[in-house]
């Protein structure tokens, strides 16, 4: 699951005080269905699975047995889990960071041209809308060591072939490249929209003052769009955290455990061998980790907004 969401910066609601009385019930009738729906299909199942953290339901076993803290102990002692944790962080940082740089750079370039801007905007959005499973197969072909076009290009240029999906570092990097391909467009288009909404007058004034283009970018544009960029990157990071489909197709978590990121780890160490208790335990760990990171981010974001 992956998507683009709008930013967290929100304006105050435009409620009309005069109608409050009449809206007494409507207020809740409009809001509650969606809320209840998400409680029933989101929060409730999550809490339900908390039970399983203390249970075992394995292949060949008809019912759940209670095992106390065994699952948690196993998880905390599992070097594979901690490895997976750090690798996930690197993946997220690399993907979101590079997407920010690339996306913003291409957005600036797009801003500088008038011809073709509208169709390029649509063409650049393509990757985001395509099914990650199909996209992964496409990249599997491109990365193929022997018959893939990328290594063919490299060799034509006189460079060495790269074991894209098989090297300890290159495998993770390959996943990042796929992420870049599919999701840089989100940052690109969002930054473009932000840039387009900036007031021209500011620049005109600055140009009169003799500021260089570089100064303009550095002193005016960047500070203005910074809060948006941070919000966009945050959203991207959250989604990058959940990466699963590309790993499933491209590396299966290998070589060794080089690309076993958290969601995939939960799946491959828990669900696939049908160890439901452990899957639930890893899942909860992921929820907790994501919440902590999200809150840290949010705090930083608030501080940035206040500054």
């Amino acid at each position: 699951m992956s998507t683009a969401q709008p930013a967290l910066a929100t304006p105050a609601p435009r409620a009309t005080a005069s109608r409050r009385g009449m809206d007494g019930y409507a207020k809740y009738i409009f809001l509650l269905p969606a809320m209840l729906y998400l409680l029933i299909l989101g929060l409730f199942p999550l809490l339900f699975s908390l039970r399983l953290v203390f249970g075992a339901w394995n292949a060949g076993q008809k019912n759940v047995t209670w095992v106390g803290l065994d699952n948690i102990q196993r998880l905390l002692a599992d070097s594979r889990f901690w490895g997976s944790f750090w690798k996930t962080l690197s993946y997220v940082a690399l993907a979101a960071g590079l997407e920010l740089i690339l996306g913003f750079a291409v957005a600036l370039a797009l801003l500088n041209v008038t011809r073709g801007r509208s169709w390029m905007r649509v063409a650049f959005a393509f990757p985001m809308l395509l099914p990650p499973i199909a996209v992964s197969f496409t990249w599997k072909m491109l990365f193929d060591f022997n018959r893939g076009p990328i290594n063919y290009f490299l060799e034509t240029l006189g460079l060495d072939r790269i074991a894209w999906l098989a090297g300890q570092n290159s495998a993770l990097l390959s996943l990042v490249i796929v992420d870049l391909w599919q999701w840089t467009p989100f940052i690109l288009l969002a930054s473009l929209a932000a840039l387009e909404s900036l007031p021209v007058e500011l620049y005109e004034a600055a140009t009169v003052d003799g500021a260089s283009r570089w100064n303009l970018l550095w002193d005016i544009t960047l500070p203005l769009v910074k809060p948006y960029l941070v919000a966009i990157v945050l959203l991207r990071a959250i989604d990058a955290f959940k990466v699963f489909d590309t790993i499933y197709i491209l590396t299966g978590g290998g070589p060794g455990t080089a690309t076993e990121l958290l969601t995939f780890y939960a799946y491959v160490a828990g669900f696939r061998p049908f160890n439901m208790g452990f899957t639930a335990t890893v899942s909860w760990a992921i929820v907790i980790i994501m919440s902590i990171i999200f809150l840290l981010f949010l705090r930083a974001f608030r501080r940035l907004e206040e500054a």
Partner: peptide, 12 residues
């Protein structure tokens, strides 16, 4: 498979 693969990849 996991540990065999780690040996092949040189992790262990």
């Amino acid at each position: 498979e996991l540990y065999t693969n780690q040996a092949i990849a040189g992790e262990l």
